[in-house]
Computed example of a mutant assay.
Amino acid sequence: MPQALAMFRRLDRYIVPVLILAGWEAFSRSGALPAALLPAPSTVAWAWADWVFGTDGNTQTYSGHWLFDMLASLSRVLAGFAIATALAVSVGVAIGWSRTVEVIIEPTLQTLRPIPPVSWIPLAIIWFGIANKPAIFLVFLGAFFPILLNTIHGVKTCDRNLIRAGAMVGGGNRQLLRFIVLPAALPSIFAGLRIGIGSAWMLTVTAEMVAVKSGLGYVLWDSYYFLRYDLVLAAMASIGLLGFLSDFGIRLVMARVLHWQRNTTIQSGEI
């Protein structure tokens, strides 16, 4: 019985995806919609396989090019996300720690924050042209504000008693930030990173549809024009998979960095 329960717990995460795929396959095969408009998962998988491995050339010019398209999108995501992380964490810590910096900078940032990143596309194209730079810029915009706001929240909610205790034993501002404030803010910062990486993938695909001529988003949009909806869905699945893996990577780093939080949670649960 315990072995069966353990097996179920390992497989329970796959129940919903399997049910969705089975229902989708059955609906596509039922003929309720033309197969060209809603390709079955098996059809999408066949096109995806050719896109990745070049099995039979059914995706034509994209046959065997998935790795190049994936790396093009991934490089833009990582570049924009890295810039957003470095700047957002630095500015967020400054705003959360200093009332003066908050008064000077935050109103401007809060004015820019509601502007949708996609509305920057015309300016990005004018400023950077049709290349990687506008996509990286849009990824940066999409990831910056979630990381910034979560960093500010993490710094502001740090236990003031810990800060006072550190100051009483002679800690200066730099020591307080390094050894007390930043460790306390890390859970919020990682939450912002997880939100930011999702936004980064959404924005790079949007940019590739308009301002770039390569990557998963470009393949998705180009396939739409040629009515290859199986390839459109394969591109969507690729983006979803890469987004999941990116989030999984951040969670691995978070589990390693915040090991003390996991131990505290386990001990609280045991109590």
Rank of each mutant, 00 (worst) to 15 (best):
S199N: 14
R160W: 06
A143I: 11
Q175M: 13
T157I: 11
F137I: 05
R164P: 00
G192Y: 07
I163W: 03
G172V: 11
R174E: 10
L193K: 00
R174D: 08
N150Y: 06
T157Y: 05
L141C: 03
R164I: 11
N150Q: 13
G170Y: 13
I180V: 15
V155N: 03
S188L: 08
A191P: 00
F140T: 01
G170K: 11
L138H: 01
V181F: 03
I197N: 02
G142S: 10
P187C: 07
Q175F: 12
V155C: 05
N173E: 15
G192S: 07
R178Y: 10
A165D: 08
R178E: 13
T151R: 04
L176A: 04
P187Q: 09
G142D: 08
L138M: 12
N150H: 12
A184S: 15
A165G: 06
N161V: 10
L138A: 02
I163C: 06
L177Q: 07
G170T: 12
F145V: 05
G166R: 08
I152R: 04
L162A: 14
P146W: 09
A185Y: 05
L186D: 03
R174M: 13
K156G: 01
I147M: 15
R164M: 12
D159Y: 07
P183C: 10
A184C: 14
L182N: 02
R178K: 13
P146T: 10
G166C: 12
F144D: 05
P146A: 08
S199I: 06
G166M: 13
A135N: 07
R164W: 12
N161I: 09
A143Q: 02
L149M: 14
F190Q: 01
A191W: 01
G166P: 06
F190S: 03
G171F: 15
I189C: 03
A185C: 08
I180E: 04
L148M: 04
A191H: 04
P183L: 12
I136M: 14
A167H: 09
R174V: 15
R174W: 14
A135Q: 06
L176F: 04
C158R: 00
A184E: 14
I147R: 00
V169L: 15
G170C: 11
T151Y: 09
M168G: 09
G196L: 09
T157C: 01
F179E: 12
N173R: 14
L193Q: 01
N173L: 04
L176E: 02
D159F: 08
F137L: 09
G192K: 05
V181G: 02
N150C: 07
I197F: 05
C158F: 00
L186E: 05
L141V: 12
V139Y: 05
I180Y: 08
M168A: 15
I163S: 01
H153R: 12
N173G: 14
G172R: 03
R160K: 14
A185E: 09
N173W: 08
T157R: 11
F140Q: 03
L182Y: 12
D159G: 03
Q175P: 00
A135F: 07
V181A: 09
R164N: 14
V169Y: 13
I136Y: 02
T157G: 00
T157V: 10
A167W: 05
T157L: 12
L162C: 05
F190G: 01
L149D: 09
N150S: 10
L177K: 02
I189W: 06
L182Q: 03
H153D: 11
H153C: 00
A165Q: 14
G166V: 12
G198L: 11
S188Q: 11
V139K: 00
R174I: 15
F190L: 06
L141M: 13
I180G: 02
P146M: 10
